[in-house]
């Protein structure tokens, strides 16, 4: 995959997730960051930092992005959510419009 087709999502602890840009765009918030003229750094470097989202949660969110693409292509599987993550995941989902 070419570098310009990926984005780097960085968690509060500094952990980096390099994922398919199409997957990341599932989030309306990330889509805006990567496309709006106001967010120069994100657009230029394809990098978004989330100082309020922990590594565990961000990993789960990345999994959801890919699950969502699969869903769109007709593959309807269950997306597992661990009960202990649910509340934190919701707050992140709320922020990411996901």
């Amino acid at each position: 995959m070419r570098k310009e087709d990926t984005v780097k999502l960085i968690s509060a602890e500094g952990f980096e997730f390099v994922i398919d840009k199409r997957a990341a765009m599932v989030s309306q918030t990330i889509r805006n960051m990567l496309t709006s003229p106001g967010s120069f750094a994100e657009r230029e470097h394809g990098e978004v930092t989330f100082p309020e989202i922990s590594t565990t949660i961000l990993e789960k969110i990345c999994q959801y992005f890919y699950w969502s693409l699969q869903f769109a292509s007709g593959k309807d599987t269950e997306f597992p959510i661990e009960p202990e993550l649910t509340l934190e995941l919701m707050m992140a989902a709320n922020y990411l419009h996901t």
Binding site: I61, Y64, S68, L87, L89, M90, M91, A93, N94, L96
Partner: peptide
């Protein structure tokens, strides 16, 4: 496709007995 928010809400509905408070969550 259900949003992640929706999936979380369905999950909470399934395990509702496990939650004692939602007051730490934003109101919406």
């Amino acid at each position: 496709c259900p949003s992640l928010m929706e999936l979380c809400i369905y999950k909470i509905r399934e395990d509702i007995d496990k939650y004692t408070t939602f007051s730490m969550l934003p109101r919406d």
